[in-house]
Nucleic acid binder design. Sequence first.
DNA 1: AGGTTGACTCACC
DNA 2: TGGTGAGCCAACC
Length: 104
Amino acid sequence: MDRKEFSNKVYEIVKAIPFGKVATYGMIAMLSGYPRRSRMVGQALHHAPDSLNIPCHRVVNHQGRLTPGWTDQKQLLYNEGIHLKENECVDLKKYLWDVALTFF
DNA sequence: AGGTTGACTCACC
DNA sequence: TGGTGAGCCAACC
């Protein structure tokens, strides 16, 4: 049952995202040990229970695009000081989670 | 069992 | 970090 472990790791990693930073699905997938499973990260987060308090609003795609159909995420990111461009994209240059820095 | 879909990513414009 | 097309992997009919 690697699916359960995969989602478990995904949750751990997402919860490890620092305040005011964002991470990409591919990054999380790579850290969880499954580089090609970026889509599954999204699936796992979509199925993620709220009881885990997962900051899924800090997770965006590699373009800095927010989750489709979830308008509240924009507000949540604003609450963390993350400013979105008019095209609804996050400045990854500024807010992308530097994993090496965190694990340093 | 096989085609479709998606909270994705990369290569290339 | 503009837009498009192909590749990927698991979930869902």
